[in-house]
């Protein structure tokens, strides 16, 4: 086969993949007209989604990265080695960084370095939403998820400046060049120059699936250090855990009201 035919086939193949990807996006679409969640009979409904991280259980398998791998694979999160340009939806941050006001001078050094799982807190009062000049990021009224529209984002990074948790990543370079693990056609890839972050797997909730990290954690650890559920429902597992056990939030003093809670 000569070069030009090969080139043509490459382009044609990519186009087909692109169309398939677009079709995949349609089925996985989590936002309908007017920004409302698309509901179907299988949709998981919650009034206020929240996450509970059982830090003790998570630490039992300290080197485990099942949740991170699952999330990043499913969401086509590029793996960029340079820490300055990394894109992360969920990752482990040392205790003294994730809870800077909790660590003190007598905390054991080893505890300060213990990894804590962090992601977007889906704040009740999200600073990122407050500052965004185009409403490319917004808080979904019906379930409290802080959503992100990468097609509207102008890449000004004001949301990154405003987020007290460092939960947002900017695509400094073309993320499609850093998808070594292959592309998941069920979820859109991003272009360079836009911001992205954890979306509490809104696209999976719409299909009746729990977030990918929660599922991966249950399967891998067999223990379930991550729990996800409706905080408005007093019967949900997360509500019960939070009323029975002592939990903390990241930087509660700022008034952002994070919806990710840590059992300690």
């Amino acid at each position: 086969m000569d070069e030009s035919k090969r080139g043509f086939l490459k382009i044609a193949g990519c186009s087909v993949l692109g169309v398939l990807g677009a079709a995949g996006m349609r089925t996985a679409t989590d936002v309908g007209p007017g920004g409302k969640a698309v509901e179907s009979s299988t949709t998981l409904n919650g009034k206020k989604w929240g996450m509970v991280v059982d830090s003790q259980r998570c630490l039992e398998k300290e080197g485990c990265t099942a949740c991170i791998e699952a999330c990043h694979r499913i969401h086509n999160v590029p793996s960029i080695a340079d820490p300055k340009e990394e894109v992360k939806w969920v990752w482990k941050e040392p205790f003294e960084h994730s809870f800077p006001t909790q660590a003190h001078q007598y905390t054991k050094a080893s505890l300060n370095e213990k990894p804590v799982l962090v992601f977007c807190n889906h704040c009740e009062n999200p600073p990122c939403v407050r500052v965004c000049p185009t409403q490319a990021t917004w808080k979904r009224e019906e379930d409290g998820i802080v959503m992100m529209d990468q097609h509207r984002c102008i890449g000004c990074r004001y949301c990154m400046v405003a987020c007290p948790y460092g939960s947002r990543s900017f695509n400094w370079q073309d993320p499609r060049n850093a998808l070594q693990g292959g592309i998941n056609p069920e979820y859109p890839t991003r272009t360079k120059g836009v911001v992205e972050k954890c979306n509490f797997c809104a696209e999976r909730l719409a299909k009746g699936q729990e977030p990918a990290c929660v599922e991966a954690c249950r399967k891998s650890a067999g223990a379930g250090a991550l729990l996800f559920g409706d905080l408005e429902d007093p019967e949900s597992e997360v509500s019960k855990l939070l009323s029975e056990r002592y939990s903390i939030q990241r930087k509660p003093g700022l008034g952002t009201k994070p919806q990710v809670y840590y059992l300690v």
């Binding site: 000049p133 185009t134 490319a136 509207r152 984002c153 102008i154 890449g155 000004c156 990074r157 900017f170 695509n171 272009t191 360079k192 120059g193 836009v194 911001v195």
Partner: peptide
């Protein structure tokens, strides 16, 4: 020049 997606700047 600071915008990641300068073509969309009028979204503002």
């Amino acid at each position: 020049v600071d915008m990641g997606q300068p073509m969309r700047v009028l979204n503002v």
